[in-house]
């Protein structure tokens, strides 16, 4: 079953690389939630994240012929999502488009898994809000390193900062998350 899915995915990809818009739309359908979730976690704003997801897929369509399959398609899409979100985020900041009151807490629509509910749903929700409240630069590092498991080098390269800067931001972000979580609980 898994092999058949992989085979179907490969076939879809090949067709999309040869210009089949229907095949690409199917790939968008498969990866849309993953791309949107990453954009939402990075940007902390539902509208901006929707724009970023849309732009990500358009950029992916343009670059698809050059995709060689060295990494998984989802990994490749993640990288485009990060770049796109970063660009849109900065543009929004410049134009003051992001009204603080409109920033939706991350994960309001999320259905937590039963295990997560059992473990500590309240802490999970609090953590999602705490991640949203982090400054953009710190949030990006935490999302990519601690949620998506990227290496320090990958995070640094993707955000165009040094590895040391990535580590410093991560240190500060984790400290702030820990403080905001446990301070509220006491």
């Amino acid at each position: 079953m898994a092999d058949r899915n992989v085979e179907e995915g490969r076939e879809l990809l090949e067709r999309a690389q040869n210009g089949d818009e229907g095949a690409f739309s199917e790939l968008v359908r498969i990866h849309q939630s993953e791309v949107f979730t990453l954009a939402l976690r990075l940007l902390g704003n539902y509208e901006l994240a929707a724009d970023a997801a849309q732009e990500t897929f358009i950029r992916a369509w343009r670059a698809l012929p050059k995709f060689r399959g060295d990494a998984a398609l989802s990994t490749w899409l993640h990288r485009i999502t990060v770049n796109t979100s970063w660009t849109l985020g900065r543009r929004a900041q410049r134009h003051n488009a992001a009204d603080i009151d409109e920033v939706a807490p991350i994960g309001h629509d999320t259905q937590p898994s039963p295990e997560a509910v059992a473990e500590n749903a309240e802490l999970q929700a609090r953590l999602r809000n705490a991640v949203t409240d982090l400054p953009d630069a710190h949030r990006a590092v935490v999302v990519l390193k601690d949620i998506y498991g990227w290496s320090h080098a990958e995070v640094a390269e993707s955000l165009d900062i040094s590895v040391t800067a990535a580590k410093v931001r991560l240190h500060r972000a984790r400290k702030r998350l820990k403080e905001s979580l446990w301070r509220e609980m006491v």
Partner: peptide, 13 residues
Amino acid sequence: YLMQMRSQLVPAP
């Protein structure tokens, strides 16, 4: 908890 957030997908618009 941060790692668990990886699998919590938010439905796309």
